[in-house]
Nucleic acid binder design. Structure first.
Lengths: 228, 228
DNA sequence: ACAAAAGTGTTCGGGATACACCCATGC
DNA sequence: GCATGGGTGTATCCCGAACACTTTTGT
């Protein structure tokens, strides 16, 4: 049984080594409207909120094994009452009027690790650059904004981001990650000093191969230090 | 109509100039069990989560005009299934088995400003020192812990705490507030330097009266600076 | 030899910390 | 005059910010 009053929505941020993206779905809708939304659906009985988020994400996008963290609850009584959302609700919900409280989750993944693929509910699943998100269904734009805030705060405390780089990575890759998430840029020397002095990473006796420039030294996360 | 699946719980921190306390209720229970819990109840139709928190708090404790902020959602399917909670649920809920997802809110108040008084659901409403909280109903102990974490992070960024001091206050009072919330102590000189240099406060040309020692200078919040 | 990214050191200013004594008032 | 909290200054350290050139590899 599903719970008609409670849903979960997932804000999955994807990093491709360059830019930060958000995973969106294009919902099947009546008419030729293109509706973009976050992957989300109702809570089922006997499942935890965390489990629900993981299940829903997998069902809608085929992504699994993603570490989802709660980022807030959204319960405006009118959050699913906007006229623009009505056609979709009417063709997809047994009670389109029902009020829905949603619990938002967010996650960070390496885009290359996941091959999102659409399921029954979604016509299309795709990544979209986080800096130019189109209009989304319901209050999903607010949910993304809030999740991004939380993400940035967590990154500053190094509680997220470990899953976004390969096992062995270069400091430039790590810097690109921080720059993409925080949408800013840092001085290379200062960034490296900090990463090393604060023991975020451990230097390996290994270098990149196959690059057409000076190969960079590889590093790995200092697991005892970082919030892994 | 109330929503059987969603509730709000309020963690109201109270400051008396000395110590940090939490507002608890003693629920009416069958038998002679004393049950302590956070003020909380189900969401009603057509009310926002924020409104629900304010309403519930007022109904149960008579506190109103309190700025409540969300601190998390708790949705373990078994969070209201513990045997210790069953008698109360049976005598107070039409469907004691119903699963309940709760949205937690927290607030900070001056204890002297509020005279909590019990309502129908609560036998007693009282403040309890935050450092020695008794066992609470459901998962309310976890909710308090989580709220305290959020509160401390917000205080560090000076986003809370303004409502806890009189309009005009001394720097010692302010320091006591920070020390109570963060459960630590600071050097007087350094604390004052920071409060003044960072323009948290504005010095007034006024002094305390009626104290049996050197009267302290009074200050007020710098409203343009602080997150008021 | 050239392109492309890696790698590296120093200076400066500001904020956090540590620390001990005199001051104004009420009784 | 004594008890009580109010009030003040300085030295040190560490961190963050700014800033430009040389090195290594593949082609």
């Amino acid at each position: 049984m599903i719970n008609p009053n409670v849903s979960v929505d997932c804000v999955v941020f994807g990093f491709d080594g360059q830019n930060l993206n958000v995973l969106l779905i294009e919902q099947k809708d009546v008419g030729q409207l293109r509706r973009f939304a976050l992957p989300g659906d109702h809570l089922s009985d006997n499942e935890d909120l965390d489990q629900a988020a993981a299940r829903v994400l997998k069902e809608l996008t085929s992504l699994s094994g993603v570490y989802l963290k709660q980022s807030g609850a959204f319960g405006d009584p009118d959050r699913v009452k906007n006229i623009k959302d009505l056609p979709w609700l009417q063709s997809n919900r047994s009670n389109p009027q029902a009020r829905v409280i949603t619990i938002a989750y967010y996650a960070l993944v390496k885009m290359e690790d996941f091959n999102p693929s659409a399921s029954s509910f979604a016509e299309r699943v795709f990544w979209h650059d986080v800096n130019s998100i189109p209009e989304l269904a319901f209050d999903h734009s607010d949910i993304v904004k809030a999740a991004l805030d939380v993400l940035r705060r967590e990154l500053a405390e190094l509680r997220v981001g470990h899953e976004l780089l390969p096992e062995k990575f270069t400091l430039s890759q790590m810097q690109a990650l921080h720059e993409a998430i925080l949408n800013s840029s840092f001085d290379k020397r200062n960034f490296r000093k900090k990463a090393i002095n604060d023991h975020w990473v451990i230097a390996l006796e290994e270098k990149q191969t196959g690059v057409l420039h000076k190969p960079a030294r590889l590093y790995t996360w200092n697991k005892s230090r970082a919030g892994i």
